[in-house]
Simulated scan of single mutants.
Amino acid sequence: MTSLQKLSLAYFIALMIAASLNYVPGLTDANGLAFGIFALDIYDDALHVASAIWALIAGIKSHRAARMFMILFGLAYLGDGVFGFFTGYGYLDLGILTNASLGLDFSLGRVLANVPHLALGGLAVWAGAKNIGSPE
């Protein structure tokens, strides 16, 4: 198993944790905000679970599948994080289609809500582009 395959499996775990945040007692406040910062709905949960399953399949299947996952997933999540800063909503959960833009904002809440997508996406694109642990 290559480094990219192992990283894909780590993404599976991270994304499943993200999908479970709404269901762990004490992690959401009275307003339904995870850690008091951002709201996750059923669409977010479905997106995280679908991405996690994709990561799991890619990690198990092959280095090439893991690399493709890293690049495509990374670009999608990186872009979603950028949109989050500019609009307050992402495109992966269709938030930009169902909500009016809140405009560019670098407040602490907006940063904390979007940094996970920027970090996961950025690391994935870097790892896939660099082709870490390539068996060739």
Rank of each mutant, 00 (worst) to 15 (best):
M1H: 10
M1E: 09
S3R: 14
S3D: 14
S3G: 13
Q5C: 05
Q5D: 07
K6V: 05
K6P: 02
L7N: 12
S8K: 11
L9A: 04
L9G: 04
A10I: 14
F12G: 06
I13V: 15
A14T: 11
A14L: 15
L15T: 08
I17V: 15
S20Q: 07
L21M: 12
N22L: 02
Y23H: 12
V24C: 02
G26K: 04
L27D: 01
L27N: 02
T28V: 05
D29A: 00
A30M: 05
G32A: 00
G32Y: 05
G32H: 07
G32L: 00
F35H: 03
F35G: 04
G36D: 02
G36H: 08
I37Q: 10
F38E: 08
A39L: 11
L40P: 07
L40Y: 14
D41P: 05
I42E: 09
D45L: 03
A46E: 02
L47I: 10
L47Y: 13
L47S: 10
L47W: 13
H48P: 00
V49D: 04
S51R: 02
A52H: 08
A52P: 02
I57N: 05
I57V: 15
G59C: 00
G59H: 02
G59W: 06
G59F: 05
I60G: 04
I60T: 06
I60A: 10
K61Q: 11
K61R: 15
H63L: 05
R64F: 12
R64E: 14
R64W: 09
R64P: 06
R64Q: 15
A65P: 01
A65T: 07
A65F: 11
R67T: 06
F69G: 01
F69Q: 01
F69L: 07
I71P: 00
F73H: 06
F73Q: 01
L75V: 14
A76Y: 13
A76W: 13
D80I: 11
G81Q: 00
V82I: 14
V82H: 01
V82L: 10
V82T: 08
F83C: 10
G84R: 00
G84Y: 00
F85V: 07
F86S: 09
F86Q: 08
T87S: 12
G88Q: 05
G88V: 05
Y89P: 07
G90F: 06
D93C: 13
G95P: 09
L97R: 14
L97Q: 15
N99K: 10
N99L: 06
A100E: 15
A100Q: 15
S101Q: 08
D105F: 09
L108K: 14
L108V: 12
G109L: 06
G109A: 10
R110H: 12
L112E: 13
L112I: 05
N114T: 11
L118G: 04
L118N: 03
L120A: 12
L120E: 01
L120P: 01
L120Y: 09
G121H: 03
A124I: 05
W126H: 06
W126S: 11
G128E: 04
A129W: 14
A129P: 01
K130V: 14
K130G: 10
N131K: 11
I132F: 04
G133F: 00
S134M: 02
P135L: 00
E136T: 15
